[in-house]
Design a protein around this nucleic acid. Structure first.
Lengths: 345, 345
DNA sequence: TTGTACGCGTTATCAC
DNA sequence: GTGATAACGCGTACAA
């Protein structure tokens, strides 16, 4: 047999494998992908050898069409360089790997319009699930997003939102209120009486819940909230807020509660850059417990959120058929006191 | 007309749109996807209206098969929770968005066998390009990886490796040697005479290059390397190495060069936990300039690597047909001296 | 057990 | 300009 015909130009196809092994397409398909094993040993071996020889890998796109379902989960985060989302994505990726799924990721940059665009684009993949890590479910821009999400879940896709979900959406809740309340109470118990909160814009649920919880816990312990400053969830927003607070005058002994560790770290830098001392002079606390908070000195007092686990749960929710929100034990939050909030003498 | 037939179960298909608009499949396709515009206005409007009404989004899998090429770029990183890879991924994502591509991501966990598995799985998507951010091109496990990569590039896929590339692979180089040499020289100029290096395992190119460069720069400036400790690229590896060094005795005035900022930060924590002082007692320097290094005190002296830009370039290399490595200006590295390495009196 | 043939959603090559 | 229709790579009744 003369080998005159050119080798397949693209990747090897199932057809190539079948021909190489001298069996039919169906048989090759059964041994390489189909689950029910009812192929003779000899054929099976030949097919596997051929596949190996040709470096065959099933074309997932073709499988997706033929099967009517893909092996993809889409993840939408605000900023993958932010350690918060990084850890979260880590958990999602681990879960996906265990489930044999592929993760596609997109970055919203905290732009609602962009987010709608991205959801629309991701929908094109017909992913099994779509995990949204930082979305607003309220506000003017939320309508467009909701429409896209409805279109997606209306055709059988699972939408998972971290934080507050909307209807028709699975949501992985976090007891932001409770955790912040615990933190507030703890700080009050340490002797703090005055607190300032550096938060995100009003209407952002996570931020609002943490504010409310902290306020309740702190005032319940005898402290009082001296002000709330609005910014964003970034380090730079925290830094700017810190500068403003300092400019307006910040009494020694005040504790600044940053809505997230990233924000709190920004605040800390501003304080230090202004020549003030963290802890003994102005105390700082955050929320999330990202890795950095452990490595800075003084260490950042915070509420530990099992982010990696959170991501894992989100993935699970996205791919489990009969997922029951109520059945999932709420993730435990834990206040971690470090040097940034020493006991007030 | 009685609306007795059930609405399409899955997502709306091009067929649905065509029927709704009362045109042929071909026309609908031309309007919604095909580029060459030669469809009458009236038809065009009707198709667009129908698509809008039905919430139609092209099935990317189907497009991929029909077109013979996908709109996917795959990214492989060691650990997405690591800020180094997070920033890198950020650049990749930005570039992909600009190019209208979708990014799928997978985590190797620094396990070579796992990496081979993942590349194989990712190949199934027939991505345009595959970006590997932390791979060994040498060593016992490298053969399997090379085979997969060859299979991929052999069928027209672009492989981009950060760091040293192999043949048939596009690589985005970084002047690790030069940057480290600059750093070493700078430290020597600051008055340091003794250095210890905390590196990764031998054979890992990035690590080896940084060691060599640092050694050259530091000894060239009159200093001497007192030891090299092997670990990994993680914070914990740095911490452990730091503990060991301290246990063996570390003279005041020594500078510890961590092979990456993450490692260096681990070392710093170990030093502080042992009650020693950073900077005045034991100095520490790193490499990469991750965000954390700026927020800790004292700030971490390091070599700035434009990670986000690096990711962007990798994406570009992965999707550009006539990409020329030589044409890309090497990314500029810059030594940044902070408080962790004060001038030696 | 194995093979044939059709369908999945889309693009592209044709005629009209 | 527009509309059939044959691919694309695969899964899977159905028939053999």
């Amino acid at each position: 047999m003369s080998e005159t015909y050119a080798p397949p130009r693209g990747a090897a196809t199932l057809h190539d494998v079948a021909r190489e092994a001298g069996v039919s397409l169906a048989t090759a398909s059964r041994v390489l992908n189909g689950s029910t094993r009812k192929v003779a040993e000899s054929y099976r071996d030949r097919v596997e050898a051929a596949a190996e020889k040709l470096g065959y890998t099933a074309n997932l796109s073709a499988q997706a069409i033929a099967r009517g379902t893909s092996a993809i989960v889409a993840l939408l985060v605000a900023d993958i360089a932010d350690p918060y989302f990084g850890q979260l994505a880590s958990g999602v990726a681990r879960g996906a790997d265990e489930a044999g799924l592929i993760v596609t990721i997109a970055i919203t940059e905290r732009d609602p319009q962009r987010e709608v665009r991205l959801v629309r684009a991701l929908r094109g993949q017909r992913p099994r699930g779509l995990i949204l890590a930082a979305s607003r479910t309220e506000g003017p821009d939320a309508a467009g997003l909701k429409a896209e999400l409805d279109a997606f879940s209306g055709t059988g896709g699972r939408v998972v939102m971290l934080g507050t979900g909307a209807d028709g959406v699975r949501s992985i809740g976090l007891d932001n209120h409770g955790g912040a309340a615990q933190l507030g109470a703890e700080l009050a118990a340490l002797g703090y009486r005055d607190a300032v909160i550096v938060a995100a814009a009003e209407g952002i649920r996570t931020s609002d819940d943490r504010i409310a919880g902290f306020t309740q816990g702190f005032t319940g312990g005898g402290g009082s909230i001296r002000g709330i400053r609005r910014g964003g969830f970034t380090r730079d927003a925290g830094y700017a807020a810190g500068q403003e607070l300092l400019a307006e005058g910040l009494d020694a002994g005040t504790v600044v509660f940053g809505i997230s560790d990233v924000v709190a770290i920004g605040v800390m830098s501003a304080i230090r850059d202004a020549g003030r001392e963290i802890g003994t002079d102005i105390a700082v606390a955050g929320f999330d417990d990202i890795a950095t908070g452990r490595d800075i000195r003084p260490g950042l007092t915070t509420v530990r959120v099992p982010l990696e686990e959170l991501g894992f749960q989100a993935l699970t929710a996205a791919v489990t058929a009969d997922w029951d929100a109520a059945a999932e034990p709420p993730l435990p939050l834990e206040v971690i006191v470090r040097g940034s909030t020493p006991p007030r003498a």
